[in-house]
Each structure stands twice: as structure tokens, then as C-alpha cells.
Design a protein around this nucleic acid. Sequence first.
DNA 1: TTTT
DNA 2: TTTT
Lengths: 116, 116, 116, 116
Amino acid sequence: MSTLRNKVQLIGNVGQTPEIRNLESGKKVASFSIATNEFYKNSKGEKVQDTQWHNVVTWGKQAELIEKYVDKGKEVAIRGKLTSRSYETQSGEKRYVTEILVNEILFLGNKENADQ
Amino acid sequence: MSTLRNKVQLIGNVGQTPEIRNLESGKKVASFSIATNEFYKNSKGEKVQDTQWHNVVTWGKQAELIEKYVDKGKEVAIRGKLTSRSYETQSGEKRYVTEILVNEILFLGNKENADQ
Amino acid sequence: MSTLRNKVQLIGNVGQTPEIRNLESGKKVASFSIATNEFYKNSKGEKVQDTQWHNVVTWGKQAELIEKYVDKGKEVAIRGKLTSRSYETQSGEKRYVTEILVNEILFLGNKENADQ
Amino acid sequence: MSTLRNKVQLIGNVGQTPEIRNLESGKKVASFSIATNEFYKNSKGEKVQDTQWHNVVTWGKQAELIEKYVDKGKEVAIRGKLTSRSYETQSGEKRYVTEILVNEILFLGNKENADQ
DNA sequence: TTTT
DNA sequence: TTTT
């Protein structure tokens, strides 16, 4: 996988308990969201917070680590690939979802560290 | 701007002539899309291409450089921040758009190089 | 500064109390080292640790934050630029030093968070 | 390999024909240097160029690609890991070398593209 | 010289 | 929906 061509990296906090699905193959898939928070002063000198939410998906062994170690509020660093996919709503409309497929995750600020 | 907390980096090709808008302030905004192409072999050993399309937005001086130098097919490297925003359709439905706000752009493979 | 052309990013632990120097201009300079630790299994299946040490330098307001908040063992994320410089030893020999000039630092896993 | 903990990325030009060594195992090793060029204005408003040289090492299949496709002056993008090692001079002194072990390389601005 |  |  080319991480020079398509790379996302986030350091932020997990929004809620990750959702774990079990595939027929026995593999797990973990889906969760990460908030990245930035603080800066606007043109009036007021402190402003810019929070962005990101959809994140991981597979296999990493999904198992996430099921075990990641919970709401935890600080993580992830590296992955930016992807979009489309699906149809029940009324036949096309919708787009942007997700980050994770290649690597670090659990930060943890004594019981469980990095991949 | 924190590029440790929220960073996207792409190396790819511009999909079409960038769309340039002029703000009332005199500033320009350039919007365009970038395709990132990856090639890999699937489990059957067949060569597969995965192309992802990304929405990219830049402001000010960078938008001017893009108006001058960037055209359909050009190879560029960008670094920016992953953002999402929502808007309402005419029928009152909420839609989400994910865009990359560019902090830096390089024009690759160019003799007449015009990096920011 | 082009972080697309020359970028280093580290997540690791500070080796010892940073050294702070005061320039005549009133500016501060902070120098310290960061250990990055990787764990992997070698060809015999044994768990191996690869630790790399990096020299890191920061200026100005960031150096002040480092003086206040960073100490031996703390986990930090940094982004910067890879630089080399040479100097002469007392016996007239040329020596080379490689250092990372920091653009951004995050203090990780911290309740009393003091990010730049 | 953890590219979140220890990552270097460079976009620059190769300094001279890469040096290729053949290991007893049959593997190849390619060593070369990359110049990264930055342009900025100093406090007097003069245009200044800052060129940094970096030592780069690659192994195996990538070294073969480098032998085939890379030559003096070529523009490349690399991603790798920052490492230092020490050796002894003939007079018994310890010397340190900092090198980037490459994980990924792109050959830029090339019609006959030969990315890994 | 850190950390797990 | 997180965090400071």
C-alpha cells in the first residue's frame, strides 16, 4: 500500500465505544469515530476550538486490539488511507461515505500499552 | 495549524480544470479533485487498480497559483487537513461533504516549477 | 517551510530533562533527545526491541513550553525538519551532527495538557 | 514497521548515481543521497535557498529498482525511518552516521514510471 | 538517556 | 460522539 500517495494521520480522542462486527470468515471489523481538536485564536483574539469528526474502520487483528483496549475518550494515533464509497438509500438515492481504512494504530498515554 | 493532529497527504493527478471562485473580499478559492492511484495484486494474483477521488479546496495565494499552473491531469502533491461540513438540500435533507483544506501544494514533474 | 519536501515525525519518550539555553536576544533554545521504540519478532520468532535516539531542537515560544512541561520519560509527538550541520573539533577535524528542528510538538497522555 | 513512531519523508533530487552493493545472500543494497531544497525570504527580504543532504539506504527489490531507474538529478519521493549507527575509525574513535532506511519510494515526473 |  |  502506498502511503506516499494516500495517507491520513490523526491524533485524537475516540467518540464512543467502537462497534465490532464479526464477518462470516471469522474476521472482525471495528468501526469508530475520532475527534481531532484544534485550538486557535480568531481575528478578534478569541480562543476558538475546531473539532473534526472522522469515520475510521479497521480489520482483523487490529480490530481485535480495538475491541480489547479502545473505549470512549481514549487518545489514539492512527495512520491510514482515505477512501470513499457510495451506497443507495431505500428510496434509491446515492449517498457517499468517506472513511479512513487504518493501517496502524497507537494507544497513547497508557500504562497498559497495547500497540499493534 | 496542527498537522500532527489532523493531516492528509496525497500525491496524485488533478481530475479536471480547477473551479475558481472570487470572494467579495477579493480572495480566490480553488476547488478541484485529485485521483490517487494504487496498484496491487489481489488474492487471485490479478493486477488491480484502486483509484480514490478526493475533494480539495485552497484559498488565497495558493488558489491563484492553482488557477495559473494546474490543469486536468497534472501531478501534484498536497498536504492539508481533513474536514467535513453539512448542508441542506432543497428538500430539507442533510448532506455531508468531506474536503481537504490544503496547506501546501507541490507541482511535480514540471520544468516550469511553481511551488508555493 | 515545506513539510512536503523535508518532514520528520516522531512519537516517543524524552530521554532526560531538556537543556535550555538563553540567547542574547532573549529567545530560548531547548535541546533534548527522543527515543522511538519499535517491537517486532525476528526471523527466529524472538521479540526484539529497536530503539532509536534522535536529537531535537526547538526555539522561542515552543522552547518555553518545553522548559515548563517536558521532563524525562514524557511521551511526546513532534513534527519537524531534518537538518545536518558540521563543526570543527579542537584538533581541527570536521564532525557532523544531525538534528530535527521542531515545528510542532504535542504532549501526549497528559491531563494537564499544554500543547502549543 | 511503525511509521507513526518514526517517520521521515523527503521529496528531492538524487545527488549522484546510487552506489549498489551485492550482499552474499544475493540481496542488493542501494545507498544514495537526496537533496531537499527550500526557498524562503530572510529577514532582509532576500531570497535564500536552504539545501539539506540526506543519506538514504534501501534493500532488496527496491535497491534493484533504484539501480535500474534512479540517476543523478532524478526527482524522488521517499518515506522511511530515521536511524543512527556508530562505527570506529582506524584510530579508534567513535563516529556516528544518520541514515534513512527507505520503506517506499516514488519516482516523480517520469513518463516511464517505475514505482515500487 | 526513554518507554513497554 | 471525544478531549482541553
